[in-house]
Amino acid sequence: MKKASVWLNLKRYRYVYLMLAIVLVWYIAFAYAPMFGLIMSFEKFSFAKGFFGSELVGLNNFKMLFSDRYFVQAFKNTFAISFLRIVFEFPIPIIFAFMINEVRSKPFRSVIQNITYFPHFFNWIVFGGLIGSVLALDRGVVNGIIQLFGGSQIDFLGDSRYFRTILIVTNLLKEVGWNSIIYIAAIQGINPTLYESADLDGVNRWQKIRYISLPGIAPTISIMFILFVGGVFTQGFDQVYNLYSPVVYDKGDILSTYIVRTLKEVPNLGVQAAAGFINSVISMLFLLVSNWVVRLMGQESIY
């Protein structure tokens, strides 16, 4: 751009630039500035020497992590659980949104919706305790029902075979309502005339969903998909932390809980920073892959 027009632009939009500047200052101060702390991952960190004075140890911190078989276990678990979440926790709110949308009785729909929003407001410390009490041996409702039907009790939270399932199911119960809001809203945003002309053509309910609703909310699904996949690797700490116990570490321990539990007494903070770095990098990879997948399917992506 020519110098004169740049200057004109700045002058004309000066209040916009001002607003942008304020916002950008925050981003630099609180989002980007801490990022250069990533150098810690490559150092034997010592506060006295600071970020730039500490001894660089290259990939040592990372080597240390990967030679710890419990780190590797947590690493694998995080992948496995993330994939499970993508397969189950992502589509189900969409299905739920459709189901809600098909309900014709307004009061019934409203009641169901409001009830399903509630659990979102619990945090996992409390919700974890409630789940624990519902799934408990002897006095948990679930085991009570199982015994009623003649089965024997199951220690859900203490059994590695069930733990991942419990993670998925309880997270769904907690969030399906809240997460479906955006899809319900998107479905309602589709032009009703499309449905009306479909009715005239004698199209049935399923065909409507397939040819009108789904394509109509495809942009929403795409964006939510990218956001979901981009975040799934690093999230979930609260839930796992409040539900897990030593007997399920082999299948349930994830990177964030491993870091908090094991690394808290390691003097070289560089190791923790390295673990956090790995977490962030993988997360970014997930994001980029999902973005690419969405592009591939012909939908609008973030990049």
Binding site: I28, F47, G50, F52, G53
Partner: peptide
Amino acid sequence: VLLALSTAACSTSDRGGSSTP
């Protein structure tokens, strides 16, 4: 990212530097 990192680094290097010990 690089731009941001370098500007941030410049402004804080004197605080986090080796003057502390």
